[in-house]
């Protein structure tokens, strides 16, 4: 399948990746090549084949509803680039 710059732009927005204009052509070309490479999958008839999300499947991996200690707040927010009043902080969201 051929990919256009418009599609690359759409995908980049979904992924929250900024594509500089100077990179657009190169990225579209790379993406096109990679997708052409992936298009080989289309040769296979998989109509009767179940998709597998895991290689090794175990069912019902569950834990008991038992409280474990939480972490100290300082440890939770220690790595935050911006924090305030015990919280992670982001640029103001206008709803």
């Amino acid at each position: 399948m051929k990919i256009t710059e418009k599609e690359v732009d759409y995908v980049a927005r979904l992924a929250r990746l900024h594509v500089q204009e100077s990179q657009m052509q190169r990225l579209t070309q790379d993406m096109g090549n990679i997708i052409a490479f992936a298009d080989k999958l289309g040769e296979l008839d998989t109509e009767q084949v179940e998709p597998a999300a895991h290689s090794i499947v175990v069912e019902n991996v569950l834990r008991a509803d038992e409280v474990q200690p939480s972490y100290a707040r300082e440890d939770i927010i220690a790595n935050a680039p911006h924090k305030q009043a015990g919280c992670f902080s982001v640029p103001k969201i206008v709803e």
């Binding site: 939770i76 305030q84 919280c87 982001v90």
Partner: peptide
């Protein structure tokens, strides 16, 4: 999200 705690930022409580 806490929008009113600060003028410039929104704060996040998980």
């Amino acid at each position: 999200l806490l929008h009113d705690a600060s003028d410039t930022d929104s704060l996040v409580d998980f």
